[in-house]
Design a protein around this nucleic acid. Structure first.
Lengths: 338, 338
DNA sequence: GCTTGGCACTCCGGGACGGCGAGTGCCAGC
DNA sequence: GCTGGCACTCGCCGTCCCGGAGTGCCAAGC
């Protein structure tokens, strides 16, 4: 009974604080929400909530603000992802349906997500290691320089330059192309790499074969070169009312470190689950006052990439989660069609 | 005589203000620079300089700061681009020589430039319209979907998806590939587009021919899709001691508007000239307190792209210009070799 | 046993005030 | 034309003070 009201108080505190960005006091609380009790009662509840570590006060005789733990409880038990309006759904569909290729899908998604959430959006390109090879093409630029072009099932096109030790001719390339295509088309990249390593090449083009296999292996294993991300909405960092140096700056720096961003997004999760990482729960202490809302996307339940937003812990979780989920769904649908 | 000293005073004011970021007074000026005259004399000179609109004071009884006009005079007549140290040159060479392909060159350049100047760096990819076609490749993804891959002399690889009205077979594609290659290899894209438009295709693949020609035309004419830029060093925006909202925010927003960035970089200029756009001289009023230092790069005197930095008007122009010029030279050299 | 009104207490924020220091403009003298 | 001197202007900063919002606690009431 009282427990229920306490949770209602917590919810009210979170909602008020998110919208006003100011510590919320007992009186304002009963006025803005119809709690049906007096401020004094709310104060007692607040004391209990503070005892449990769910809220805190910045300084004596100020209102309360939620702690990370408080947000966590709020997200887990006190709220549901609020569905998007049909107008919003339609807008998302319209914008994303206009995309002409994968690059375009990613660019539009990241912009859209930033606009919907008013936060910094991050979209990972479909992971190389989870995509199948749809087509492989070799282009001989010079006798010792080969361009390998991989076209993946997700629509992603990846190119790599290979410098060869020996000069090769067009015939060699044609032969290699045929053998490559037979070996790896339709397979995932990890499978393809194994296949290639196992294949015994004709001695005359062994060097080329090995070089190309190396490139594929590297494309798979080297996170820096194989996992790409797009970022958008950096201007929304201004919404951090917080101090520039402590909050905005590290984030601004991280936005150029794609490895960091990938780590922030976390591991892809299938099943349409939206992951919320609140403040200190994340892997970096510098981001103690930022939360990450992310989810996987991809055909069916198999996530082939992640997308999400990063913003202040003080954010509108239900709305943000809804936007992230909605965009991920539409992206999945589009990739499915392609 | 007095004129000379006045200019020396202006130079001293610019240098001091750039390094301290605070209005500089007459007394500090004679102390830090060996001007050989008394503060009172300097004050007279300052009054004259202010009369000419070269310096101004934020409020009565504060020191002076340079105006845009003052910076302009400083850049044009009071300073020379200070050459990089050999250590710096070596560092630039080492970093850029490690690049494996054009993307890598651009990424490294933008990072390098941001680090050298401690400002926001912008590097434009080699302009499509000024590059020659080295190779063209067609890949039939589905019977009605064709991937056109252009490899340009600059090393840039561009891909476009073409949706066809009619289904085509491998033979058609092979034929088209041959004709395309003959028609456009070695030509610039504008030339290639003209050539394609003029060519009379065999009637059976006329539709495909037209579609591909359209894509090439669009690649040339549509700035948004054909001109790409890379941005780096956004974290250096923190160096704007200025107010966040008025200076940093619009820039942060612009960094995602590549069209705006291209306009900021300006038209490519050959001949190794470094262009400096100071404050209000630029095309956007929002950037009244930012300057752009840019230059063209490319083999010989023919600029095929621009690069530069954008920062507060209060910046170290000689050093920044030197860094921009040095990076442009090395990028040009690398593109020349490739 | 909760809930409530009352009350004293704390502390932040903002405005007023004043001294300090940096810097200027002007003037008379060299 | 340069210089030293001098009065003046202001921004900056620390202090002080007050109002207001909010709290914690307690005693009374349902």
């Amino acid at each position: 009974m009282q427990d229920e009201r306490r949770l209602a108080v917590l919810r009210a505190i979170v909602e008020d604080y998110v919208s006003t960005q100011e510590p919320v006091g007992s009186k304002a609380l009963v006025e803005r929400h119809g709690l049906g009790v007096s401020p004094a009662t709310v104060r007692n509840d607040m004391a209990a909530l503070e005892e449990e570590g769910l809220i805190t006060q910045p300084h004596t005789s100020a209102g309360r603000i939620p702690t990370d733990k408080g947000y966590r409880l709020f997200v887990d038990r006190l709220t549901t992802i609020k569905p998007m309006t049909t107008a919003e759904r339609r807008a998302i569909a319209t914008i994303l349906d206009g995309a002409v290729d994968l690059d375009d899908v990613v660019q539009r998604s990241v912009r859209l997500l930033a606009q919907l959430t008013h936060q910094v959006a991050i979209v990972q390109y479909p992971s190389l290691s989870r995509s199948t090879v749809r087509h492989v093409e070799l282009v001989l630029l010079t006798p010792t320089r080969l361009l390998v072009i991989l076209i993946l099932g997700s629509g992603r096109v990846e190119q790599r330059l290979v410098d060869l030790d020996v000069a090769v001719g067009d015939d060699d390339v044609a032969a290699l192309r045929g053998r490559l295509a037979a070996a790896i088309t339709g397979r995932t990249i990890p499978e393809a790499a194994i296949e290639l390593a196992a294949a015994v090449p004709p001695p005359d083009v062994a060097g080329v074969h090995a070089a190309v296999a190396d490139v594929l292996l590297e494309a798979l294993s080297d996170h820096r070169s194989s996992e790409r991300v797009a970022v958008g909405g950096a201007a929304n960092l201004a919404r951090f009312g917080d101090s520039f140096e402590v909050s905005v700056r590290p984030l601004l720096e991280a936005l150029e470190e794609h490895v960091v961003l990938l780590k922030l997004l976390g591991e892809a999760q299938g099943g349409g689950m939206v992951t919320v990482r609140i403040g200190h729960e994340g892997p970096y202490q510098e981001f103690a006052s930022t939360s990450v809302v992310s989810t996987g996307y991809g055909p069916g339940d198999a996530a082939i990439g992640n997308l999400g937003v990063v913003g202040p812990t003080r954010m509108d979780y239900p709305g943000t989660m809804a936007a992230v989920r909605a965009v991920a769904r539409y992206v999945s649908r589009i990739l499915d069609e392609a």
